[in-house]
Amino acid sequence: MTADRLVKGPGMLLVWLYGVMSVGAVSRSAYQIATEFDRAPLAYSLSAVAAVVYVFITYTLVRGGETARRAALVCCAAELVGVLTIGTWTVLDPAAFPDTTVWSEFGYGYVFIPVLLPVTGILWLRRARRVAPAA
């Protein structure tokens, strides 16, 4: 393990939550796209995008290192933008979404974890750089 590993302290809790969201989003979108894609193509495609983002962030957190930290930071920002955009979109135009996505209504169906996770993720990743300056 290198000195700049990201999975330590609060990072362990973060990687657990990202892992759970990855498993949840991947299995959910795989099932929905495989069985009933025609019912709500937009919602299910967006869920699949969210799943890819979660898996990638989990992977970069586990991998660690400065490059991974930067990549994870970018993805957390993209995730936050995604949650806010989709969340607002589902509130303003519910008709576009016959079924919910992971990010519908700011992650209401997932105890708002989808909107809280990127914020804590960004805070943690920024702090990780201060604590462990480029070794």
């Binding site: 999975v7 330590k8 302290g9 609060p10 990072g11 362990m12 809790l13 990687v15 657990w16 939550l17 892992g19």
Partner: peptide
């Protein structure tokens, strides 16, 4: 089991927090 394994790796309060979240 997954959260418990992670708390074995992280021997601090954050390991306990991970199990609580699990």
């Amino acid at each position: 089991p997954a959260a418990g394994f992670m708390s074995l790796v992280e021997r601090s309060r954050w390991g306990s927090a991970t199990v609580a979240a699990g």
